[in-house]
Design a protein around this nucleic acid. Sequence first.
DNA 1: TTGCAGTTCGGGCAAATTTCCCAAGCCGGA
DNA 2: TCCGGCTTGGGAAATTTGCCCGAACTGCAA
Lengths: 217, 217
Amino acid sequence: MNDVAATGISVLLVDDHPIVRQGYRRVLESQGDLHVVAEADNAADAYGAFKAHDPDVVVLDISMPGASGLEAIRNIRARSPRARILVFTMHNEAVLVKSAFSAGASGFVTKSSEPSAVVNAIRSVARGERAMSDDIAHILAEDSLSPTGSALDQLGEREIEILRQFAGGATTEEIATHLNLSVKTVQNYHYLIKTKTGARTDAQLVRLAATCGLTRI
Amino acid sequence: MNDVAATGISVLLVDDHPIVRQGYRRVLESQGDLHVVAEADNAADAYGAFKAHDPDVVVLDISMPGASGLEAIRNIRARSPRARILVFTMHNEAVLVKSAFSAGASGFVTKSSEPSAVVNAIRSVARGERAMSDDIAHILAEDSLSPTGSALDQLGEREIEILRQFAGGATTEEIATHLNLSVKTVQNYHYLIKTKTGARTDAQLVRLAATCGLTRI
DNA sequence: TTGCAGTTCGGGCAAATTTCCCAAGCCGGA
DNA sequence: TCCGGCTTGGGAAATTTGCCCGAACTGCAA
């Protein structure tokens, strides 16, 4: 690992908006100890940039076109398990946060956070600690009060199948017919899937299914 | 009007993410002729800041909580018809662009644009010209050639806004709070949107919003 | 063999939401 | 001026959700 104390923290910025990257770069560099050594504007380039520059921390927005940011996290971590990745996005859904962490992220900070919170999160992640912004901690705390599991891997075979059809746009009756189940059973699965994944909305369920590759949009 | 040539261009930044504002501020100020004289983090404060500082250009992200950005545009223009407003957002839906211009915006630039395109757009708008980024021009052109409008074209601007938030994972109550509406009204919009678009399921609605670029997954 | 744990399947019932229908206010165009 | 569309919400019946429950079936291990 780099000698962080002596050389400062090197950062790889991944975000699809050029001017946003430029803005972050200036904010981070004004801190003195943070140095943006590379940028990438999509998930596919992120790993190449990571390999080329071996940054201490990857700061990455998961809402990007093309491959999902979650995939980028998995991609980088699979080949460089010591990589520190800080997710930095406007989204604050519990499902997404949990997916990001289980994909291998070290931190999760929303864009609503103060700049100081963001740079502190970068420093924490560089030290190998876990970091998240206050709003994320709150959402996760709220979510953890119900004895749910983590994300999609907690679902059984049937639940996955029903989630797939549901996210594909099928109605409850249609799913019941397809699978020769009673409507009530499908409704119960629907409810179970929501509680297990922590989704509070059907829309969140669809987004989860999409980000996990269960359905294509 | 201010003497732009002699004093430079004063800018009011409106965006709900503190670090994003900070980033823009640094990028713009590095240009020499652009000066950020005020910031606002929501549509409600935008007009107050405008009145207090009388900036040459308002740079505003329309995807904000609270009153929609479109409302902020109308708000400012209604009371100060000479205001120059440049919409600066990640969204690139033709419907949104048209709504923004008819609300009184002078320009529309996406965050995918190069920083140089953004600052040039600010200068154009300050000179009283209309400005838009290349991708927006392309989308508008494409849209005007298609005989069959997108499914979103039949929706009003409120419906679009509610659909965006819904597809983003917000609950009915959250949307009602964000937009200062009764839950009942949001429910009615939800129903109306479904019937207008022909979606029979919330999941289909999310997919529609995603394929139309209203939301990203 | 027994027993435990997990998955699948569905009933029940109160609470919430969806589905329609309706109305009033506002604004822009004919 | 009148018409039509958008926005905002009330009302009431129909449906779904949220959360409880039990039962059958599986595999697995003691």
